[in-house]
Amino acid sequence: MRFDIITVLPGLLESPFAHSILQRAQKKGIAEIVVHNLREYSTQKQRSVDDYPYGGGSGMVMQIAPFAACIEKLKSERDYDEVIFMSPDGKTLNQAMANQLSGLTNVIILCGHYKGIDQRIRDIFVTKEISVGDYVLSGGELPSAIVVDAVVRLIPGVLNDETSALSDSFQDDLLDAPVYTRPADWNGHKVPDILLSGDQAKIEIWRHDEALKRTQDRRPDLLE
């Protein structure tokens, strides 16, 4: 799967993609993440990509021409399944959406900045808008990294344990059950006996019950 991310701050995305699971996925050739500097597509002497909003108001608006030039260049090289814009008024990212995206091949992600992007970019080029929550960030770079991380870990071959992603929270509309590791007794705080029993069938029932209790307590909306 290939991600082409368009941003005015490419340096902001260097670290998230250079470590851990995302780094391994790229080294294995399972995922390709390419970050494009939007300023390279500006025709302005100062390589500016924003201007004052029509109708007045505060803030600057990202112009349509640089985005159009970058998107059209990318589309001339390959077909894309989605052109995603990270926006607080997009559909909220959840596990079901991440599952769906993980089945795609080529995706473009647009990172907004300043006051926002010219609406015509959204009207002409964008096929999906995604939000990572009901709050506003300085730009779309960190949300784009969240989307890539959530999606790439689901691609077969990325995780060492293929079943790990399938048991994550939200995969079955439940939060995950409590997990424990050695030592079995730490200063009197013990691991539940059932997990030490070796009876896998009973352990799975316990985990499901605990997941249900945790979801009921913390996220009852998921059970609706």
Rank of each mutant, 00 (worst) to 15 (best):
L196W: 05
D81N: 14
V136K: 05
Q26R: 13
V49G: 04
V151C: 00
Q200K: 09
L195I: 04
R219N: 13
N99L: 05
I6T: 03
K190M: 09
M62K: 03
Y80N: 11
I109P: 00
G198E: 13
I194S: 02
I64T: 14
A145C: 15
D221C: 14
Q200S: 06
D209Y: 05
G157H: 06
K115P: 04
G140T: 09
L154W: 02
K213I: 07
S102I: 01
G139A: 13
A177V: 10
I109R: 00
L154T: 01
I64R: 04
D168S: 08
Q100H: 08
I117G: 00
L212Y: 09
V83C: 14
S164E: 13
F67D: 05
I21S: 00
P88R: 11
G55P: 13
G139R: 07
G112Y: 05
Q63R: 14
G11P: 00
F17V: 05
A65Y: 15
V158G: 01
A145Y: 04
K190W: 04
S58E: 15
L13W: 08
L196R: 00
G116Q: 09
L74K: 11
E40P: 01
A201C: 03
T92D: 04
L223C: 10
Q63Y: 01
L212M: 13
Y54Q: 13
R207T: 02
G29I: 13
L22S: 02
P220Y: 14
Q46G: 06
Q100L: 08
F170N: 03
G11E: 12
V158H: 00
D149C: 04
L223K: 09
G112N: 03
Q63L: 15
G198S: 11
G157K: 07
D209A: 14
L154F: 02
A68C: 15
D4H: 13
E224L: 15
